[in-house]
Design a protein around this nucleic acid. Structure first.
Lengths: 191, 191
DNA sequence: GTCTATACAGGGATAGAC
DNA sequence: GTCTATCCCTGTATAGAC
């Protein structure tokens, strides 16, 4: 792949990612992507073979989801888990927005997303169950609590202006939301 | 409005609601709505003046959001709040799914949704702040904690098959999720 | 009030020149 | 490898018959 070819593919990816996150998959046309990227329409088909594949190429970035070793200490593992993944998604605002949209839509593309994030979710499940076995955590249903935690995290990443109108700006800027979401979750599940 | 006219409008609304919740606004065409409803294409324009207005007519059902009196007791008010609104959204699965999608999309239609649910969110905010003032609840930022709670609730209502694949089925069916989400939230914010 | 037929804009993908 | 021009499909909305 030549330097120039790389540039075009890269420009398309960057523009598509921006537009998908703002307008959703259906709301983003190939024409808009190409206008944003400053390239002509057929280049999407030429380089990627269609809109769908541009989307999949963006999802590939999920394979860079960070890994961290587990210590076996439930509180510490939970803390690490939240820290690592929150910082990943905070750096990847557009990507997290796209995932949020697609999962909310139950779209056909969701299956692909799941295959990327399944391991992450399973890890959280493992941490919760380990904590419960050791008597550090206390809750009824693991999968329900995974749901709740993912719900909290989703809201934490979300860059939605709509939510800011609805809920209001964060009021204590000196206390970071990363810390507060851990407080919330840890208190919620500890014994 | 004649009986027959009511029936057609009603059929369109019911079909549109189902399809919007499954396919999203952009993914739902007027043709699909009419096929589902068993009526001809122009009737949407005739009765509603367009697809957008069908959507708004569905949102009108949000004005039936239940009201409940506040007692001033933070724990009780929180419990009532969660109970009332969870049961509303559990009865209105399709509607809650639509709201979830639209808010995730930051769509142009979100403003309308906000105007319906703003009061509900403000009420939750009030309950949290009252609880903190009385020393029953303990947290840093009200708006952050409203975010977390709404995140938990969103995941609780969500009928997404995708999430079931990702997280797994609820494992303890005898302990209702309505009860568990209260446990989770209450533990998270109490002193 | 409801239908069939159609207009017209916009979608994705491609043919063919360069 | 990249462009212009175009194809064909599907989207919404409407004209006009009944």
């Amino acid at each position: 792949m030549s330097k120039q070819e790389f540039d075009v593919k890269h420009k398309i990816i960057v523009s598509a990612k921006k537009l998908f996150s703002e307008l959703g998959y259906d709301g983003t046309s190939v024409r808009k992507i190409c206008d944003e990227a400053g390239v002509s329409l057929p280049l999407v088909s030429y380089h990627f073979g269609g809109k769908e594949n541009v989307f999949l190429a963006i999802l590939e970035q999920l394979s860079k989801l960070p890994y961290f070793p587990e210590t076996g200490d439930p509180k510490l593992d939970l803390q690490n888990y939240l820290e690592v993944y929150i910082s990943f998604y905070r750096q990847e605002r557009e990507l997290s927005q796209i995932i949020r949209q697609e999962l909310a839509m139950n779209s056909a593309r969701s299956d692909k997303i799941i295959s990327f994030i399944q391991a992450t979710t399973d890890k959280l499940k493992g941490i919760l169950e380990n904590g419960r076995d050791k008597g550090v955590f206390k809750f009824e249903s693991t999968s329900n609590n995974v749901r709740f935690i993912l719900g909290c995290l989703t809201m934490t990443f979300s860059k939605s202006e709509v939510l800011e109108i609805l809920i209001g700006q964060t009021d204590s800027s000196n206390y970071p939301i990363e810390k507060e979401v851990f407080d919330f979750i840890y208190k919620a599940i500890r014994s």
